[in-house]
Design a binder for these strands. Sequence first.
DNA 1: CTGAAAGCGCTTACAG
DNA 2: CTGAAAGCGCTTACAG
Lengths: 343, 343
Amino acid sequence: MVDGRPVRTGRRGVTIHDVARAAEVSIGTASKALNGTGHLRQETREKVLAKAQELGYRPNDLAQSLHRARSMTVGLLTNDSFGRFSFPIVEALEQKLADQGIAVFMCNATDDPEREKQHVEALMRKRIDGLVVTARRADKRPPIGPLPGVPIVYVYSQAEDENALCLIPDDEGGAMLAVQHLLSIGRRRIAHIAGPERFDAVRLRRSGYVRALSTAGISYDPSIYLNGPWSETWGRDAIAQLFSGSGPKPDALFCDNDQLARGASDALRDRGIAVPQDVAIVGFDNWDVMTLAARPQLSSIDMNLSTLGREAGEALIAIMGGKPMRGVRRLPCSLVIRESSKI
Amino acid sequence: MVDGRPVRTGRRGVTIHDVARAAEVSIGTASKALNGTGHLRQETREKVLAKAQELGYRPNDLAQSLHRARSMTVGLLTNDSFGRFSFPIVEALEQKLADQGIAVFMCNATDDPEREKQHVEALMRKRIDGLVVTARRADKRPPIGPLPGVPIVYVYSQAEDENALCLIPDDEGGAMLAVQHLLSIGRRRIAHIAGPERFDAVRLRRSGYVRALSTAGISYDPSIYLNGPWSETWGRDAIAQLFSGSGPKPDALFCDNDQLARGASDALRDRGIAVPQDVAIVGFDNWDVMTLAARPQLSSIDMNLSTLGREAGEALIAIMGGKPMRGVRRLPCSLVIRESSKI
DNA sequence: CTGAAAGCGCTTACAG
DNA sequence: CTGAAAGCGCTTACAG
């Protein structure tokens, strides 16, 4: 009890009023003590803190946000049916933001523009401070914004939005890494088992493949560049195409993902062709489920999705802090060498 | 302009004051019109709505939540490094909640108890209405709560918390489905390539395997029950163990996941043993990346993770609505038959 | 050093 | 049918 009134904590939980009453100060003073602001006697400050602790006081972020310009929340809009790619991005992003005391609303629109619109609307009502958009897409996506006062960062997704920042892997550079590596181990006839051409990434990787070859003085041979779906099955079928004819056979494969590489590797094994002795292989994604299970284990290009997520978080924080950023930023991939391309 | 004052929308966006001023009513009336509450003249209501639309008014959920008992947000705490399992759950859960106008805060604690504690603390300050905890774990996890006033649902995760609701797949039933199916196609010597024994799920599946066999009058033979890691490599190694000796060979395999099944299938192929003619296979997880790429495609047990996520959402909504639920609920798995166990 | 008061954006009895 | 006022839980000038 304090001055006759019980120190009650209403049905709705303990508020700053309860703390102030218990510490026998005004709520203004309690607020200052709790936030470490203003000039207070050390004694007062400690008393308030002690009472708050005792009562199990938890400040109400909703009330705070009403004053501060910022809600300390951001939205994360995803469209990815391939959770596999977004997961590392989202994980790193969330961690980065959580470290700064920023909470993340997750919204999955599963490629439905109507759901997407509703999500954005709901996020705006929640007064998010920023928005991250991620999605595996064949090509550029329509822009979300502009959202008055809310910066947008696209990650692993590119929008036709010149005012936003886009962070994506450097697909062309990644492909060059792969091909240069194969060249460096002495391969000269490098086939490219590619994904569907409608993907931006596929076209960029093709371009990297061609550039790396031409830099080495090797001209592009369309007969060993093959497009197909993103599956192991297509990887196996591609081997059938490449090795059935009577022409010269490839001595290396660059594959647009690890499933293609795995399929190709299995098909070569079936034909008694040795990897990497007869044919070296480099895949893309560095997906351990594939690379480590294949025999031999597969070299691969890593898109560094965690880095991408982390940098997206850092960029968003910077933008929210008043430092505008825009344009497309391509982050480097890296090469992970395993048995399939050693020696 | 209205009565001399410009209809300005402050730096912080347009508020209900702006709408009220534009519609020439009080903010109380504006509020009622906007919410469809109270008794208003049709004309007034429409005028307010029109002005709100015109000004691009978006109600501030933060302010609303201060009044209503509910913030219309829930927390989602994950600990899953295998994003693969949580993704379908989380996706279905989020969709279910979004349909009810409930937003989801994503928190990944990546198995760090300290991070987990901070996340929970942050969520409480955000005044979440509920919490969902998900994680792939070997065994029961320590309880999060109790959290005053905040119901908790564990999904794909079990806690030593008798006051909470836990939703998990019926592993034992799933295993029985698999084995009964193999029995139904005439197999009698069914090996079980299992995961690590420290997993609750592994012990339960073993029990389902044993029960299904014994119901069919077949006694459990420990020499064809093998534990190992969750990898394709172990699946292949297990085949070496099972088929190298001189004893009778299995005519079917039940594998604790699809990677094991895939590895086993590849190893059988290498030995010239035909699937399903010589050995039929059923895996677990129904993970298309594995089941569809294997030759032949793999039958598998589906844990119906989307259903699990959806039901977790429904349960949480029900509990938040005042209908308490507790205890462990095991949801049925289903069998998906493919070439590896046909005929 | 501390408190009273206004205000963040909204809702909801309560009068009229 | 509409408005004035109190209040949700907190912060922040402004006085004293």
